[in-house]
């Protein structure tokens, strides 16, 4: 076979190439699953909109808005979290079942590039889920300020937090069963308690203190403030950024340690 020169020079001029390759792989897999993924992203928001928005919350008003208007930003926060964290499942399957993680480890891409690629993939999935929820909201006749900078910042920060947590979790767990347990113990409670379905400030004060410890509570607040076209304090923005960076740092360390 005809040989060509080394690609080491190309590596030097493309520091992000490793991250983009990892990101591209996740997107190709997503594309290969096509409609199934998009439909699955739409199922639970549709159910919540019908059951809580049109059923339980009909005629109810929260902070001067219909319950449906209150619910949709919460669903955006929850959907973003679920989809971003969902990347953990993909990494897990690649690692434990298909052993594809070893293909990355044997390549000259850095651990940091790997984490960046996977986090970006998780964030991309999260943003896709937002488009679906916004589309559903439109179909349900709800118009909110989805273009508002706070809404966008809330979505992106929330996605960053949970995609980073997902990479961390995927490296720490030892099996698929552990992964499912993490989802049940961390993500599911947060989905219901993080200001998604009810206003946190209506809870008893001690419960409020506990709920303020959840990143999703701050994401819901930001996303809802943006969707309502309101301003918000900088604290949740800073908090989410800090939490996201901590998870990202820990995720990077955990990937380094995944070489047994």
């Amino acid at each position: 076979m005809r040989e060509r020169p080394s690609t080491a020079a190309a590596a030097k001029v493309a520091p992000l190439a490793g991250s983009l390759a990892i990101f591209r792989r996740e997107m190709l897999i997503l594309r290969s699953r096509g409609k199934k993924v998009l439909l699955s992203m739409a199922v639970s928001p549709t159910l919540y909109l019908v059951a809580f928005g049109l059923g339980v919350g009909k005629g109810m008003r929260v902070d001067g808005h219909t319950y449906l208007e209150f619910l949709i930003p919460g669903l955006v926060a929850m959907g973003t979290m679920n989809q971003a964290f969902g990347i953990a499942g993909e990494i897990n399957i690649a690692r434990f079942y298909w052993k594809i993680f070893e293909e990355f480890q044997a390549a000259p891409i850095s651990d940091l590039a790997y984490v960046v690629g996977e986090v970006l993939a998780g964030m991309a999935k999260a943003v896709m889920s937002v488009f679906i929820i916004v589309l559903l909201a439109t179909l349900f006749g709800v118009q909110l300020a989805f273009y508002h900078p706070l809404f966008i910042a809330g979505v992106l920060l929330n996605a960053f937090v949970f995609a980073s947590l997902a990479v961390l979790a995927a490296m720490l767990v030892k099996s698929h069963a552990d992964q499912a347990m993490l989802f049940n113990f961390i993500i599911t409670p947060m989905a219901f308690l993080g200001g998604t379905f009810f206003p946190v400030d209506r809870m008893p004060s001690w419960v409020q203190v506990l709920l303020q410890a959840l990143p999703l509570t701050h994401a819901s607040y930001l996303i809802r403030s943006g969707a309502y076209g309101r301003s918000a304090s900088a604290l949740p923005l800073v908090l989410l950024l800090v939490i996201g960076l901590v998870f990202f740092f820990l995720a990077h360390r955990s990937v380094c340690r995944a070489r047994d």
Binding site: T7, A21, L28, K99, I100, I109
Partner: peptide
């Protein structure tokens, strides 16, 4: 590395598997 376990991306095509590997090595 040709690993003992067939660790190809089964959902992707033959071309995509090779192309991704090339990207992992900055080709």
């Amino acid at each position: 590395l040709v690993p003992q376990v067939v660790n190809l991306d089964t959902e992707l095509t033959v071309y995509q598997n090779l192309d991704l590997h090339g990207r992992f090595f900055f080709m």
